[in-house]
Write a protein that binds this DNA or RNA. Structure first.
Lengths: 196, 196
DNA sequence: AATGAAAGGATTAAGCC
DNA sequence: GGCTTAATCCTTTCATT
């Protein structure tokens, strides 16, 4: 699969609304047969666009701790480490890494003592500072949105059209807008792999 | 249903991992029959705990605009308005309302001109200021987490035990820890309704 | 990508504790 | 009220074109 068409987009929209919707329902909507929908869904998963089928829980209705936003001022070069650390925490729901390298996460903590949790979750010498804000309410919109859905080249970020190419590395499929982006990416991977 | 037990918690966990998992699979895991699982899922949906089955998309693989975090310093009393405004925007994925009344949202914008989007999305006289941060990467964890899952009273926030009560208002089910919380909630609703 | 057959899952109803 | 079993209906998958 090299690009996403309107049908893929529609399938994702329908699944975002109800991930347990029968493929036969979706098939009716997009004028395909159920196996064709199943195929497309499998390809969307392979491509990594569709990460998983999941649930949207109303955590506010659960006694699931207090929700807080924690902003970490991360020391240069330690971003990936802090990101991985907070993503490994059960209490963490969302993680944002800003272009400046700071890490913002939302977490639900059973305790009022956020400091203790932070000290436990991340290496304190990796951050200069952190800031905690209590969250009164939050929501999430699983809509696909009005923006064009098309694959982005894993090398240069440009749109991948039907002339695009793909490569499977370590079981992950990567997409490229052209052959040169593909070889650049694959070469770099092989160099890194050889070093390791 | 008045409280969530370990089985409900496990069912939510399994569905968070894969929302299309067959109920018969889940039934095996929790030692129940498939209809029993189906019943519990239906009740979790009725209770509003399980909002919807949905998908986790890797938007970074899509040309879906640039992701930004926008923090609004909201004028006192206009929080709900700003929250509703950003939630109504297609581009917005997450919305957090802090205890201080500020609104933080993550959005994916097709344009570089975030200011124009903001001016369009919210009434500018409702905010004192806003701050935009570019996001390099983000993730979301649909795990239920290690925290006890139990219903919270919609009136006072305390844990709802099996002695709790429920009320259905406008098709939504509400849960209360005791009869007095229930009547307080229902009375308030009826007063508001009479005023309208 | 469609078709049709076979396998597998969901839901209903009846009955039990 | 919550559970189970059994029967029915629906959905998905696979082989084929």
């Amino acid at each position: 699969m090299s690009d996403l068409d309107d049908t893929d987009r529609r399938i994702l929209e329908l699944l975002a609304t109800d991930a347990r919707r029968p493929y036969s329902d979706i098939a009716d909507d997009v004028d395909l047969s159920p196996p064709a929908v199943s195929d497309r869904v499998a390809k969307l998963r392979e491509a990594g666009v569709l990460r998983r089928f999941t649930v949207d829980l109303d955590r506010a209705r659960l006694r699931d701790g207090t929700q807080v936003l924690v902003e970490f001022a991360v020391r240069p070069g330690r971003e990936a480490e802090v990101q991985a650390a907070v993503e490994g925490e059960d209490a963490v729901e969302h993680v944002f890494v800003t272009a400046a390298g700071d890490v913002v996460c939302s977490a639900r903590l059973p305790v009022a003592d956020v400091s203790a949790w932070v000290a436990d979750a991340v290496a304190l010498d990796a951050v200069d500072d952190y800031d905690v804000t209590a969250v009164a309410s939050s929501s999430w919109q699983p809509t696909v949105g009005g923006v064009d859905l098309a694959l982005a080249c894993d090398e240069c970020g440009n749109t991948v059209t039907s002339e695009g190419e793909t490569a499977t590395i370590d079981g992950d499929r990567h997409h490229f807008c052209c052959g040169s982006c593909r070889s650049q990416f694959v070469d770099r991977y092989e160099r890194l792999d050889a070093d390791a």
